[in-house]
Simulated assay, not measured.
Amino acid sequence: MFTAYAIITVITILANAGIAVADLKRAGFVLANSAEVGLPQTWLPWLAALKAAGAAGLLLGLAGVPVIGAAAATGLVLFFVGAVAAHIRARVYHNIVFPGGYLALAAASLTLTVAQ
């Protein structure tokens, strides 16, 4: 069980750290997606900070502070529920798989963290 927890959590950490960097760099796909769902570009650094904090919290959870890991996973689940909701609200379905994938990773990390 620990192996599954570690693998999924590391994947979730890398995915969220990567997208946080893309947000901060204002990558083209990030700007295009933000515009489609009606997200102001001024929010990108704040959203990147939340994703990076979630990744850091998951890393702390792996390092032996499970309460922080569980809190980070919960925060990421809530964050990506909001992202999926923003896509649905804006009727942008062609790329909803991306926030859905991040949501699935966060939910799996939360489930495995709680099961530890």
Rank of each mutant, 00 (worst) to 15 (best):
P99W: 09
A22I: 02
G100T: 15
G61F: 10
F98Y: 15
L103D: 15
A108T: 15
F29Q: 01
I96C: 09
A90T: 05
E36F: 00
W43D: 10
A53C: 03
V67S: 11
V67D: 09
G64M: 08
L50G: 11
G28C: 00
G18F: 00
L62Q: 07
G54C: 09
H87Q: 07
F80A: 09
G28R: 00
S34G: 08
V30E: 00
R89A: 10
G61I: 07
L31P: 00
L62V: 07
A55C: 05
A22S: 06
G75C: 05
D23S: 04
L44A: 07
A52S: 02
P66E: 11
P45G: 04
H94I: 08
L103C: 15
I88R: 09
L24G: 02
A52V: 03
K25D: 00
A17Y: 05
L47T: 03
A22L: 08
A104T: 15
G69W: 06
H94R: 14
P66M: 02
L78C: 09
A72C: 07
A107F: 15
R89M: 08
V97G: 06
V30A: 00
L44K: 02
G38C: 07
I96L: 13
G69M: 05
V97A: 13
I96N: 06
A90G: 12
I19H: 02
H87G: 10
A83E: 06
G100P: 14
V84L: 04
L78T: 04
A108I: 13
L58V: 07
A108S: 15
V37S: 01
Y102G: 15
I19N: 03
P45N: 03
A55E: 03
I96E: 05
L60S: 03
